[in-house]
Design a protein around this nucleic acid. Structure first.
Lengths: 231, 231
DNA sequence: TATAAGACATGATATAGATCAATAAATATG
DNA sequence: CATATTTATTGATCTATATCATGTCTTATA
């Protein structure tokens, strides 16, 4: 009997690749004619929460954070590598507003797709619309699962979960250089920077991970997984 | 200049009503021929997290909780009154699984729409697909906003927020009988039942609300709003 | 290269909210 | 109707994590 899937906070979208494959040659041409490729430098803002979304953005390469902000503080909703879309929830009719901001962790190349063209494609190509629905479902499930994990896990579990996620889904390696500050790790886990540092030190002392500045190496994945589930 | 919208956790879906209006007479007939109307009694489970979703459910009347559960505990994702759909995120192709459970707070009448028919309608009617996309966007924004509010507000703010939401969006009255136990109020706010009780008592003493068992009355809405924002 | 500014680290302390314990009230059940 | 069971409430205590303080290390900048 299959073991119940653990409550982790990280599931990447599988449907993006299928999305554009549904387009006809004509539609592909329409798309190409209505997109701009823009290079962003590390540290630049890609879109700002609350502003009008004139484009849906596709990440060709680079690493991006999606986050919500208020006077009180920020929450990083997700970290997105190449191959993902930014701004889908701005498709909402009569309300094309970015509900979050995006920031480039690394130099990024983005395709900015005119949102009107994106909507037109949804209206004229059912398979495309269906794939967009798939994407939105995945996003929804991901956000919910992450939200649930947040309410169930405490600090150690959240950090472990986050490290597992970064390793498995973003970098796909046990060793990786993480372009997030400790403060940002805090915003990703809902903790304070001090707490993050203490927990990372604990993991290091317990020989679960190795850390050298921004380079993380997971040396006891099983243990980390346990902490993520029961810590 | 318009004041920035506050970080509350409650936005109801406006698009459901538009959704089925897009269907042609033939499609409406197809829908009618492939749905069952089922009455559920108060306390019954409408769908169970992890099970195959054979239907999308429309709430004709009653009040429903949508929640995620694990051995560790539960989180109420939202409370849905009549006019809403349950199970949209199960539309994901090749993965028609309910990602949450649903429970009837009151006697409910639901229309169970065969998920294959629902998907067929998405494929054959672009306007319908577009409205489903709108719905999914709204859900996504709602979940994100609630998640963000959870990470920013502490106990008093969360309870105030929840009461405002129930009053404004669910019952649309300042006085309402709430069919949730204190334990469920805890699962809705991510606190313990004891904390919920203490905070409600505080609100009562401060003459912000009146409580008599399950009947709540908001007597100082402005104050409650303030607590929700800055508490 | 010096100096400033930010990031990282660690210890001491404070506190919000959980946990535990003990009734009381409400609801269910034989 | 009496008894059992669940739910609500209140108080005492504990603890996870935030906050505050201080110092070092690293990176930017003049």
């Amino acid at each position: 009997m299959k073991r119940e899937e653990s409550t982790n906070s990280c599931t990447l979208n599988t449907a993006v690749e299928n999305c554009f494959q549904t387009l006809t040659d004509d539609e592909m041409l329409l798309l190409e004619n209505n997109l701009v490729v823009v290079n962003y430098k590390k540290g630049e803002i890609l879109c700002k929460q609350g502003t009008l979304a004139s484009h849906i953005m596709y990440i060709c390469n680079g690493l991006v954070k999606i986050y919500m902000e208020s006077e009180a503080g920020s929450l990083i909703l997700k970290v997105l590598p190449a191959g993902n879309l930014i701004g889908l929830s701005a498709l909402l009719d009569n309300n094309n507003i970015f509900r979050y901001s995006a920031y480039a962790y690394q130099d990024c190349k983005l395709r900015l797709i005119d949102i009107r063209v994106f909507k037109q494609l949804i209206r004229q190509n059912n398979s495309f619309a269906n794939q967009v629905i798939n994407l939105l479902c995945e996003n929804q499930i991901q956000t919910q699962t992450r939200f649930f994990a947040f309410t169930q896990k405490q600090s150690f579990g959240r950090i472990a979960d986050t490290l597992m996620c970064l390793s498995n889904n973003i970098f796909k390696m046990d060793e990786f250089e993480l372009p997030l500050s400790r403060k940002e790790l805090a915003e990703l886990t809902g903790l304070t920077p001090e707490s993050v540092i203490r927990i990372l030190s604990k993991f290091k002392n317990d020989r679960v991970i190795e850390i050298d500045g921004k380079v993380f190496k997971i040396i006891n994945k099983k243990k980390l997984q346990q902490i993520s589930e029961y810590g």
